[in-house]
Nucleic acid binder design. Structure first.
Lengths: 161, 161
DNA sequence: ATTAATGCAAACGGTTTGCACTACT
DNA sequence: AGTAGTGCAAACCGTTTGCATTAAT
């Protein structure tokens, strides 16, 4: 149980983020909110997830740890965590909710329509677009909602023969 | 009835696109597909729409012309039209299907989370991003699936006081 | 003892489907 | 006549909600 506050990751799975998960419990308490087994499971799943997951995926993964997991609880907890600034959500190319965890730095997403893989677009990569939108239109881009689809190198190569 | 083949837009609403809509009927016939009243209504609605609409919006607008419009027919016709290359669909920030008509040039979408307005991003504006993705990652961006959210000038000003 | 959080089950909204029927060609 | 297209109604999927119950504080 790495999200619990206990030593964490003695099993070899390195904790993705040094700080953050241990404090969740306290941050909940600080707001008069509660630390429940269901929340522990979700936090644990989130701490293992690598960037972005759909709501449905999270539910599925929680069920692996606790088969009695129920959607409403997961979504409600995600809401709370979003309030705490611990997760953020956007919408993927297929239109499903996509949560990303611990948005240390804002970033967008790059989706390959071939292999369905996803990568992150950081501030540096998006700088030109952000600047252009700002200058041309006075539009402030929210990087965490930037979604770009296309074909990745591998898929392009594969389809080219 | 502007999509019908008849003179069109005698009422003052200028036809958005000179070519394209008149030929739909023929293009359908050329494939052994049929020209039905329901399709005429949808085509008519599309011919009046300015760029991008959700499926639900299209249904609503079709119902204005023909209250007996039914969702399945609309979606099925949109499928056919997409096959013909007459519409394209992507997903908006809120995750709903978003159709854009006659994609003469590929373009992405800019969504304001304040006023919910949408603008188009053309190739020129996206060039830097497209180039960066291509160079850094070998990723070919599909402009028609580019979705950028943020706050427009007006909303930024409004919220700033 | 409070009252936040849960589980259930039902509702939601947009979209998709199976099927018998209609109507374009 | 033949088959593409329709309308209906029900199913779908991910998500949200109301409500009585449970359990963290």
């Amino acid at each position: 149980m790495s999200a619990d506050g206990s030593p964490a990751a003695a099993d070899g799975t390195t904790p993705r983020t040094a700080a953050g998960w241990e404090g969740v419990r306290d941050r909940l308490h600080a707001r008069g909110l509660r630390w429940t087994p269901q929340r522990r499971v979700l936090i644990d799943v989130l701490s293992r997830s690598d960037g972005h997951v759909t709501g449905a995926e999270l539910i599925e993964r929680c069920r692996e740890a606790d088969p009695s997991t129920v959607p409403s609880t997961v979504y409600r907890t995600l809401d709370v965590l979003e309030d705490l600034g611990i997760v953020r959500h956007a919408h993927g190319v297929d239109g499903r909710e996509e949560f990303h965890v611990l948005p240390v730095s804002d970033h967008g997403h790059l989706h390959c329509t071939g292999c369905r893989q996803t990568w992150e677009i950081d501030e540096g990569e998006a700088r030109a677009l952000v600047a252009a939108m700002r200058e041309d239109r006075g539009f402030r881009v929210d990087l965490s909602h930037l979604s770009v689809a296309g074909v990745c190198r591998e898929c392009a190569a594969a389809s080219a023969g």
